[in-house]
Design a protein around this nucleic acid. Structure first.
Lengths: 256, 256
DNA sequence: GCTCTAGTATATCATATGTTATAACCTTTT
DNA sequence: AAAAGGTTATAACATATGATATACTAGAGC
């Protein structure tokens, strides 16, 4: 796996080789060198995997949860459904992201999670998370950072919903996803390939489907994005960033 | 402090005596017995305190942060300000709540924090947090739970902004704060004493000041709340819960 | 080649919320 | 006691977004 196995704590050296193993290892190893031991511990974590079809829940709000999930492939959503059937998507999880890191007692899930596209997930016993904290301080910092990042992403979502116009909300979300895909190496240039429908976008942005479509059209008309069948192209990232007041720092990579 | 000092790991026994020390100890000790050692470690954590006047920031988005804060007294907010001056409050922190638990590397804060009322905060070196994970598994679970709870609270805020009407948003927020104050023993019956202005509420709920005021009036007119100078009374909690689709489980206390 | 269905697109009308303006009230300052 | 500034209250008007309806398109199944 990693070519250089020395554990130079605290010294930022170089990126992990891009071939590096699981998305989680890539993520945590992106800006600090991990030892062979750390890497193999993380990999061992992820031996127990499941496959989930698009549209299928892998945990449900209100039910007890005792496992933690790590996205290996595909996209998933965290979401809530209200009694009138309205759905609010809280956030998206991409390869390397962790779901339910903290719901590791007899607590009930406060949201549901479902695959957006066909996905592979690692299923982890949360007791193994405590092990990390006890044995691998660097990895522990990494997990802690990952948690802070999830919090920042949800904070951005809050700002979007509370203080941005429909058009800006959409632009902001597209930028978030583009940056996140960029960080995990899943982008080709300024093209975005998204697995969700406009209806999903609407439920993310707190808009109606019709108005989401209108906002998409507005972005197109102002030349900020263009679309083909399955792809969206960000035509002018600087202009998008400015109109949506997007702050890429919130997605920054882990650095110890 | 604690009368019963035996560490009965994993056995839910009884509440900490209500006299118990710091709000954080009360919070983490609320549903599981903490040993004398755990309690005194937590207390020692909080020796270094600062006082912050209402309206004063104690950290600012975009600046480097190396300390963690624990609310001892007073209220504070996490918030973001956009370039056009619009502000979005992400969440409120009450005594016992932790701010910046995870921003413990050379990362920049992704939001600002300010005191809403005169507050006392403990300032903690994040290295001491790793100690907890390494030495006190029960406390570590507690911190992990506290993190999950903050995440759930921010998730609720997302649902409020995305999928509730103005009136329901306000009701939902009042219920959240009432429940949280109830849990820390700061309520008298159905009365709420809030330190924030309607302008703060507006910036929390993603509304204009005028419409926040209108929504407050609407709640009053439908008999769901009543107000005196400094207090709000929840006249019919069941009806409020139903109309706002409020789920108190998200605020549940820690149980191992 | 048809039919079904999910998704996208657009138009029309309805309404929740924003904006601007003004006044009343309270607290603090002088 | 008056002035000043922040907060709450309400009205009148403007607009962003929601709701409903109807096509259009593309793929899936037969």
């Amino acid at each position: 796996m990693s070519e250089d196995s020395s554990n130079l704590q605290g010294i930022v050296t170089n990126l992990q080789p891009p071939t590096a193993s699981s998305p989680l290892v890539r993520k945590l190893g992106s800006l600090c060198l991990l030892s062979e031991e750390e890497i193999s511990f993380l990999e061992g974590w992820q031996n127990n995997t499941i496959d989930v079809e698009a549209g299928v829940d892998f945990f449900v709000e209100g039910t007890e949860r005792k496992t933690t999930f790590i996205m290996l492939e595909g996209w998933s959503i965290r979401y809530t459904v209200l009694s009138n059937g309205r759905r609010q998507i809280l956030s998206y999880a991409l390869p390397g992201d962790i779901l339910g890191l903290h719901i590791n007692f007899n607590a009930k899930a406060t949201y549901s999670a479902a695959a957006l596209s066909t996905s592979r997930l690692a299923v982890v016993d949360p007791r193994r998370i405590l092990e990390i904290y006890q044995k691998f301080p660097i990895l522990a910092s990494g997990l802690s950072w990952a948690t802070a990042r999830e919090f920042a992403i949800l904070g951005d979502q809050t700002v979007r919903l509370g203080r941005l116009s429909a058009k800006a909300r959409l632009a902001h979300l597209l930028l978030e996803l583009w940056h996140r895909l960029e960080l995990i190496g899943n982008n080709e240039g300024n093209w975005l390939q998204l697995p969700m429908t406009q209806s999903d976008l609407a439920d993310t942005l707190g808009l109606s489907l019709v108005h989401t479509n209108r906002s998409m059209a507005a972005l197109r008309k102002s030349g900020l994005v263009s679309m083909t069948k399955n792809h969206i192209k960000l035509e002018n990232i600087d202009a998008l960033v400015q109109m949506a007041e997007f702050n890429p720092d919130h997605l920054a990579e882990f650095s110890i």
